[in-house]
Design a binder for these strands. Structure first.
Length: 480
DNA sequence: ATGTGC
């Protein structure tokens, strides 16, 4: 596949034209600022590789936060036919159902600032963070973990960790129905048992933000957002359990791809026909890991509410700590898309991309029926984050939008730059309080390691995929 | 992302 030329179609879209063995073309959402950040990115080649996979429907897509990943690029979206398409663990990634949620508060910055330090200290002590972190306050046996894996957030409600009326603010109501814990290995179960309700490491975080700009008054009102309001963002995934599921099935799919004679441009794209036993097993295990991640975020929310109650001496309900939405970032599932004017069901892979339902979509809860789905886009540690709403144009991305800023530098490169700096001090100077479990992780996560999220969001919104509802500014966070 | 590197 020589000479992968990017052709600009309009101010917000680049095209990779189809060249054998590609089965389709690629679209990268990028304005000129994003295009400059792409360079000769390996991720573009990875997107072209995805276009070679059997049964792909429509173009393969990349959001503006595209960067290099395992097999598929992060920021990639690809649809596969239910009858002759494939499913690939590389199309989901190692952190199955890594995702983000936003909690509203009825507090403003001046209510929180005087208590910010003790609030963060309380959150850091209530929520285990860092590589290998375990939750000593929650003892669950294998039988109960099976229920978590099968029923997702329904388990959280039954155990009193979440309320039933916030389930509709979870993507898929917090439960992927195709989950089958029987396909999750003993090793994965073992890793997952002590990790429910832990933050993890890497780019995972819990953050307090202030709404500093309203993009659309009417949408913001429907979302319950207003200027100077404090919001909470929680970003985490399926921890060691999901990682192990991916690892297990990458190996399964290597031999499956060979058995089915699927030609792979890259071994990391190992996959199997959706109709195969291997695919059924992966989908069952991956969905179970996705349910683990929903519950993980439910529990972190429960501990967050407990910290707010302890510091502000009021119930979390009276502090207004309600769920705006919980979005999945890394997942493959059967979804309806519109392709060539027909509504069809496909196996949709989103890897570092957020679902973004358009206004009127029957999958939206009543509250968001006319607004479109809340899309939460975290930036780097120092710059903005955004709350968007899925817009009418979202059908062209199979109802998907960007999921973050996207890495600009590798972790190694970031660490090298951070050696000459004091990341904690720099954040403090920018009036952002941080408690981090690891200095190394903080170095990997320095703001300079990320693209400017505003350019990512502008690209997606100018292309008509989503609308800006609010821009947020971070004031404090805990990091793994 | 990850009991961080086969």
């Amino acid at each position: 596949m020589e000479g992968l030329a990017l052709k600009r179609i309009d101010p917000y879209r680049l095209e990779i034209s189809r060249k054998p063995p590609m089965r389709t073309w690629g679209i990268i959402y990028a304005n000129t600022a994003i295009e400059r950040m792409l360079g000769n990115d390996e991720a573009i080649k990875q997107l072209a590789n995805v276009a070679c996979l059997p049964g792909i429907v429509g173009p393969c897509l990349a959001m503006p936060d595209i960067h290099w990943g395992y097999g598929f690029p992060i920021g990639g979206v690809a649809a596969f036919s239910k009858s002759d398409g494939i499913v690939s663990p590389g199309g989901v990634g190692y952190d199955i159902n890594c995702g983000i949620r936003c909690l509203r508060t009825s507090l403003e910055q001046h209510d929180v600032t005087p208590k910010l330090k003790i609030l963060l200290a309380s959150l850091f002590s209530n929520i285990p963070a860092g590589v290998g972190a375990i939750n000593k306050n929650l003892k669950i046996n294998r039988k109960e973990l099976q229920r978590v894996l099968r029923t997702g957030s329904n388990w959280s409600v039954q155990r009193g960790f979440a309320s039933s009326d916030e389930m509709e603010a979870h993507e898929e109501l917090g439960c992927i129905e195709s989950a089958d814990p029987g396909y999750v290995s003993e090793k994965a179960i073992e890793r997952g048992l002590p990790q429910l309700g832990t933050l993890g490491s890497g780019n995972h975080f819990l953050e307090l933000d202030v709404v500093d700009l309203i993009g659309d008054e009417s949408l913001a009102k429907c979302f319950g957002l207003y200027k100077d309001q404090v919001l909470i963002l929680i970003h985490s995934g399926s921890r060691g359990l999901g990682h192990q599921v991916c690892d297990d099935y990458v190996h399964t799919m290597m031999s499956a791809a060979q058995r089915f004679g699927i030609e792979l441009p890259d071994r990391q794209l190992a996959c199997a026909p959706i109709t195969s036993k291997e695919a059924q097993a992966y989908l069952g295990a991956m969905s179970a890991a996705a349910n683990f991640a929903f519950v993980n975020r439910d529990l972190i929310t429960y501990y967050t509410r407990a910290s707010f109650e302890a510091i502000f001496r009021k119930s979390w309900e009276s502090l207004g700590l309600s769920l705006l939405y919980d979005c999945c970032h890394n997942i493959a599932k059967f979804e309806h898309i519109i392709w060539q004017d027909k509504r069809i069901e496909v196996c949709l892979h989103r890897k570092g991309a957020t679902r973004a339902l358009a206004p009127g979509d029957p999958r939206l809860p009543w509250r968001y029926k006319d607004t479109g789905q809340p899309v939460i886009v975290p930036g780097d540690m120092a710059r903005s984050s955004y709350i968007l709403a899925g817009a009418e144009g979202a059908h062209e991305t199979f109802f998907s939008a960007c999921h973050g800023a996207g890495r600009l530098l590798s972790r190694q490169q970031a660490k090298k730059i951070a050696r000459k700096k004091n990341p904690l001090e720099e954040l403090k100077r920018r009036h952002i309080q941080v408690i981090a479990a690891s200095r190394t992780t903080l170095a990997e996560e320095i703001p300079e390691a990320y693209k400017d999220v505003s350019e990512v969001v502008n690209t997606i919104c100018d292309a008509g995929i989503a609308k800006i509802v609010a821009r947020l500014r971070p004031i404090g966070m805990i990091k793994g």
